[in-house]
Every structure is written in structure tokens, then in C-alpha cells.
């Protein structure tokens, strides 16, 4: 049986031999990945491998994150990642959470309060919007806290050879909730249904932030689902087989 979707760009995945500057020129969302991994700008004509090496970052992890973000068909090879690379990935995800909650969400919050406290605002409507946003912010907070406090420590444990009883990465995968749906709802409410009288420059500023963050959230979830989960599942299996062998 055939099922295919041709809307996908069929180009090849990113490779370590490409020029880093070419990669970024083709997909500017990669800037965020570079920044979180602590890779310094000023690439010159260096390749991805060279830049990563110079910054002591695993090129494999960097490329896997970029490929997952930009190609739906990309499937990382589990065998080829070392434990320290998995630890780098966890660090990357933690940094992302931190950036979302301490940088992106506060700037969005500021826009929301500018809108709801503007001169033309209807206090009833403002309250509704404020409440929706606060509810969403709390949901995000608990999503990230659960991963920071439960999932990542479990992974770190696995990396040092200890497997916590009663938990598995499969459990995380099953309950991993969607964090971008409500963001997209907020976007549509502002775009389509916000009554007149609100400062449109702030509304547009907020909208562009929401579009960007939605894309970030989608990529973030894909890295968790399609890189972290299979990597950890692979490690879990290898621990199991060691225990069996002894």
C-alpha cells in the first residue's frame, strides 16, 4: 500500500560537512539552537563539524536537533549516540525550558497586560483574556517542572547506570501533553475575534511572538518525542540486557 505526502521538501538531511553559515541562512530557527548550545558566532567558512568541535559541542547532537526540527522524515540512529551526548541533550532541553519560562513567556505576558490594560479595553474582555493566559502559563509551568524534576533526573540516573524502579520513558511518552494547542488558540482569538479598540501595534507584536513560540514548542516536543524518548528507551534496553547477562 502506498501512502505518501509530497508537500515535504525532499532535500537531504543536514550533514556535518555543510558550511554552518549556509545552514543558518537556510533555516533561521537554528539560531536558537546555536545559542542554547553555547556556540559562538563568527563561523567564517567553517563546516558544521569544525564549528561544533571548536565550541566543544557534539556535532551529532547539534545535527540531530536541527534535522528533527526541519525534516519530518528524519530518524536518528540510536546506536551512534554516546552517554555524554545524551547528557548534552538533556542540558539543551533544560536550557530551552528555562528560556521559555524566563524569557519568552514573560515578554508575551507583558504584551498581554499592555493589551488588557489599554485605554480602549473592555474590562470584562480583559479579564477573560488575562484568565485564559494565566491558566495556560500555569499549565506550561507544570509541564516543564514535571520534565525538569521527574523525567530528566530519571534519564540522568539511567546514564549513570541506575534505573529507578516503577518509572520508564514509555510512561513519559504516553502522558506527554501537547503544549502548543492553547498557544495556537490564543493566536486565533487575537487574530480573528479580538473586539475593536485594542492597540493594534501591541496585538501584532504579540501575534508574531506567538507564531514564533508555537514553532519553537513544536520543535521542542519533537526533540523530546523523537530523540530523547528513543535514546533513553535504547539505554533502558541495554541496562536490561546487562542485568540479564549477569
Amino acid at each position: 500500500m502506498v501512502y505518501y505526502c509530497k508537500s515535504e521538501d525532499m532535500r537531504e538531511f543536514y550533514s556535518g560537512n555543510e558550511k554552518m553559515s549556509t545552514l543558518v541562512n537556510g533555516s533561521y530557527m537554528i539560531i536558537k539552537i546555536l545559542s542554547r548550545l553555547g556556540i559562538k558566532p563568527g563561523f567564517g567558512e567553517s563546516s558544521v563539524n569544525e564549528v561544533c568541535y571548536a565550541n566543544s559541542v557534539s556535532a551529532k547532537i547539534f545535527l540531530a536537533i536541527c534535522n528533527i526540527a526541519d525534516f519530518n522524515q528524519y530518524k536518528p540512529e540510536m546506536d551512534s549516540f554516546s552517554k555524554s551526548e545524551t547528557a548534552d541533550l538533556v542540558r539543551y532541553l533544560r536550557l530551552s525550558h528555562n528560556e521559555f519560562m524566563n524569557k519568552d513567556i514573560p515578554s508575551i505576558e507583558l504584551c498581554v497586560s499592555k493589551i488588557t490594560s489599554s485605554a480602549g479595553a473592555n474590562p470584562k474582555h480583559s479579564k477573560i483574556l488575562q484568565h485564559f493566559f494565566e491558566e495556560y502559563r500555569d499549565e506550561l509551568e507544570s509541564h516543564f517542572t514535571y520534565e525538569d524534576k521527574t523525567v530528566f533526573p530519571y534519564v540522568t540516573g539511567i546514564l549513570s547506570g541506575k534505573r529507578e524502579k516503577g518509572y520508564s520513558i514509555e510512561k513519559f511518552e504516553e502522558n506527554h501533553s501537547n503544549i502548543e494547542a492553547k498557544l495556537s488558540d490564543l493566536k486565533n482569538i487575537l487574530l480573528k475575534y479580538l473586539p475593536a479598540g485594542y492597540p493594534h501595534d501591541v496585538v501584532y507584536d504579540l501575534l508574531s511572538r506567538l507564531y514564533l513560540l508555537e514553532e519553537e514548542f513544536e520543535n521542542h516536543a519533537r526533540v523530546e518525542d523523537f530523540l530523547l524518548v528513543p535514546l533513553v528507551a535504547h539505554l533502558e534496553n541495554s541496562i536490561k540486557s546487562i542485568n540479564h547477562g549477569s
Binding site: K124, H125, K127, I128, L129, F132, E135, A181, K182, S184, D185, L186, N188, I189, K192, Y193, L194, P195
Partner: peptide
């Protein structure tokens, strides 16, 4: 509407005066 979540739809209903708070 492009709105998926129940709380998003509630905001829609409130903004449009379909329900009261």
C-alpha cells in the same frame, strides 16, 4: 474558528456574548 481547546472556545463564547461569566 481555529480554536481547539475547551477553554479557548469558552473565551470565544464569552467575547461574543454567547455566555455570561
Amino acid at each position: 474558528t481555529g480554536i481547539k481547546s475547551v477553554s479557548g472556545l469558552t473565551v470565544y463564547a464569552l467575547l461574543n456574548g454567547l455566555i455570561e461569566q
